[in-house]
Amino acid sequence: TIGNFGLGVRYGRQEFTDGPSNLVSQKDNNTIHTSVQGLRAWGQTGDVRADIFDFKQVTLGTQGLSDDVADDKTRFSGATFGLVLANSATRKVFLDPFAWRERNDSLKWGRVTGREVRNYYGARLWGSLDRLTLDWTVDHQSGTFAGHDISAWNAFIAQTYVIDPKHWKPKVGIHFDFGEGGGSYGSGTLHVAKAPFAGTIAY
């Protein structure tokens, strides 16, 4: 802690979950969690925080204690921010914008294996407004794959409403996930949306 700022830095093998779980997750439903290797630094003051990072994916081996190595053919870097929009007894709302870059030198789409550089630009709006709980994430993805442009969208929309705030507190809710697709077998723009390392199941 320095004055009104909380600062931190972490280097080495670690788990990273600072973003929407639909896009980044440690995959805690699996026996072995997803891990990355690299640098992460963060800062927070008042109602604003920032997290910057630069990682490589970790390839898991089966030959012993020293065979889980950082994959130089991959890179995941960027920044995630956090803004407190409301923080009271009945309203707690947060906005988390993010800008990420992911590189994979040997990714396969359709029949082609090549280098992909993908940029993620989006935000997560989440929290509660009295009886309403919401969790919305939207992102656009751009970049290139094997000489082709990338343009794709993701949207993850979930909200619940408490019908009766007393007694058993029953809720009704809507959960909607959208991921754009197309272009994997064509010669034009790739429209397939993806996630760096999201959870493999949704609740």
Rank of each mutant, 00 (worst) to 15 (best):
Asp130Lys: 13
Gly114Asn: 09
Gly127Trp: 05
Asp135His: 03
Asp72His: 13
Leu39Phe: 08
Ala99Phe: 15
Asp130Gly: 02
Arg103His: 12
Thr34Phe: 07
Leu129Ser: 10
Thr144Val: 15
Trp126Gly: 09
Ala155Gln: 08
Ser66Ala: 10
Gln57His: 10
Gly181Trp: 12
Phe76Val: 05
Asp47Lys: 15
Ser77Glu: 14
Ile163Tyr: 11
Ala123Lys: 01
Val58Ile: 11
Glu102His: 05
Pro170Tyr: 05
Ala50Gly: 08
Tyr121Glu: 10
Val162Pro: 11
Lys56Asn: 13
His33Val: 05
Thr113Val: 10
Thr133Met: 10
Asn87Lys: 14
Gly46Trp: 00
Leu39Gln: 01
Asn119Phe: 12
Ser77Asn: 10
Phe156Tyr: 14
Val84Leu: 06
Gly38Pro: 00
Thr74Val: 04
Leu125Ser: 00
Thr34Ile: 03
Gly143Val: 07
His167Asn: 13
Tyr161Lys: 03
Arg124Ser: 08
Glu102Ala: 11
Thr113Pro: 03
Asp135Gln: 12
Gly64Glu: 02
Ile52Ala: 12
Asp105Ile: 03
Pro170Gly: 06
Trp168Ile: 12
Gln159Trp: 13
Gly143Ala: 04
Asp177Tyr: 10
Thr90Tyr: 11
Leu132Pro: 11
Val117Leu: 07
Phe98Thr: 03
Trp100Glu: 02
Phe145His: 15
Ile163Met: 10
Asp72Thr: 10
Ala99Pro: 02
Gly64Trp: 07
Gln57Gly: 14
Leu125Glu: 00
Tyr121His: 13
Asp139Gln: 12
Thr113Asn: 02
Ser77Ile: 09
Ser66Asn: 11
Leu134Arg: 12
Phe81Ser: 02
Ser88Glu: 14
Ile163Thr: 13
Gly173Val: 06
Asp54Pro: 03
Asp72Ser: 14
Phe53Asn: 01
Phe53Met: 01
Arg115Ile: 09
Pro170Asn: 07
Phe156Lys: 00
Val172Ala: 10
Ile150Phe: 09
Ser35Lys: 14
Glu180Ala: 08
Gln159Val: 09
Gly147His: 11
Gly173Thr: 08
Asp67Gln: 04
Glu116Ser: 11
Ser106Ala: 13
Ile52His: 01
Arg40Cys: 01
Lys166Met: 07
His148Ser: 08
Asp130Met: 10
Thr160Val: 09
Gln57Asp: 15
Phe94Asp: 06
Ala89Pro: 05
Gly147Ile: 05
Asp177Thr: 11
Ser35Phe: 05
Val112Trp: 05
Gly181Asp: 15
Leu125Tyr: 00
Trp42Phe: 06
Asp105Leu: 15
Thr80Gln: 07
Leu39Asn: 09
Asp67Cys: 00
Tyr161Leu: 10
Ser151Glu: 06
Ser88His: 07
Thr62Glu: 13
Ile163Cys: 14
Thr133Phe: 05
Gln44Lys: 12
Ile150Ala: 01
Phe81Thr: 03
Gly122Asp: 04
